[in-house]
């Protein structure tokens, strides 16, 4: 049987949370940048909502007077003091990888180390100012390389499971935040329902979750708040939906249960969260308060994260 260090489990879990955050933030910056190019008039409020989604709006305002592309991109990509910036996320992911190096295959470690080396070079060369799209596309490519090497080279044992749990919890959190930042444009009370401004906002939500193409493919181009909420929260076919993340979380925890021969409180907690998610459909959620639903979910998701840390002795 595996006897893995609690600290190693923690390192893997957090390595993947930071790696996922790295990718999510890159996606947010990409969406924000696109909006600022195509709709210069609303750029300011778009960057504000991107910063809010990343949970760093207040920190940003301590350093910048106003929301603009230059300041927001610097802050979200390169700022060392912003714990959610691309720089800080990949530095933390790599530090956790270094700590758990003995649990990683050489391929995985090298892929992570490579992103870090490349990103540091790009940051020093100020590439986020001169060629942001290229920087972001290389971030996406390299993150895909890490994911590929994890899937292709790691044993399907507890090491892999803790890594997967970290990624899924972070991703569910991120999708909920994307929706919550823009929840008001999805409400029926919104004055300009169906207006072109709304359509752009909805598009932005989907783009932030890398879901715009699949949405159009599945829903035939018919955009509605209800369909978007349904897609991002309930559609298990979408790998960034909350339901998908919880399906996988439960499956991963079940695999751990089989391997360790013991069920922990985290299993029950995850099951109750999943039941809560699937119990209501999108219309009901919008009707009774999308914002409240999302805030509640974010708190539940965080509680599950702590429960996992406690059950598997991440800390002494």
């Amino acid at each position: 049987m595996n006897k893995m260090l609690g600290r190693t489990a923690s390192g893997l879990f957090w390595m993947m949370r930071y790696l996922e955050r790295f990718e999510n933030t890159a996606r947010l910056v990409d969406a924000g940048f696109r909006m600022s190019l195509t709709r210069a008039r609303t750029a300011e409020s778009e960057w504000e909502s991107v910063l809010t989604t990343a949970g760093t709006r207040d920190l940003y305002l301590q350093r910048h007077e106003q929301f603009n592309t230059g300041g927001a991109v610097d802050f979200l990509v390169a700022e060392k003091d912003n714990p959610s910036s691309l720089y800080s996320s990949i530095a933390a992911a790599r530090e956790n990888a270094r700590m758990t190096r003995t649990a990683l295959t050489r391929d995985v470690w090298e892929a992570i180390n490579e992103i870090w080396i490349q990103f540091k070079r790009d940051r020093e060369a100020n590439k986020h100012r001169t060629d942001l799209p290229d920087l972001l596309s290389s971030v996406r490519q390299q993150a895909a390389l890490v994911r590929g090497s994890i899937n292709g080279t790691m044993l399907r044992n507890d090491i892999f499971r803790f890594a997967v749990l970290g990624a899924l919890i972070e991703r569910a959190d991120n999708t909920a935040r994307i929706l919550d930042t823009k929840y008001y444009v999805l409400l029926p009370s919104s004055a300009s329902v169906g207006s072109s401004l709304d359509r752009v906002q909805w598009e932005m939500i989907l783009r932030s979750a890398s879901a715009e193409r699949s949405f159009h493919w599945l829903y035939g181009g018919e955009m509605s708040p209800s369909a978007i909420v349904e897609f991002l929260i309930h559609d298990v076919r979408l790998p960034r939906s909350i339901a998908y993340c919880y399906d996988e979380i439960i499956e991963t925890l079940s695999a751990l249960e089989r391997e360790y021969g013991r069920r922990t409180p985290a299993h029950d907690l995850a099951a109750s969260h999943e039941a809560h998610i699937t119990a209501s459909n999108s219309d009901a959620i919008i009707g009774s308060g999308l914002h409240e639903f999302l805030i509640d979910f974010i708190a539940r998701n965080a509680a599950l994260s702590s429960q996992i840390e406690q059950d598997y002795r991440f800390a002494s």
């Binding site: 595996n2 260090l5 360790y260």
Partner: peptide, 9 residues
């Protein structure tokens, strides 16, 4: 003993 995901070993 080391603190593992399954207790102390």
């Amino acid at each position: 003993c080391m603190r593992t995901t399954c207790g102390f070993e």
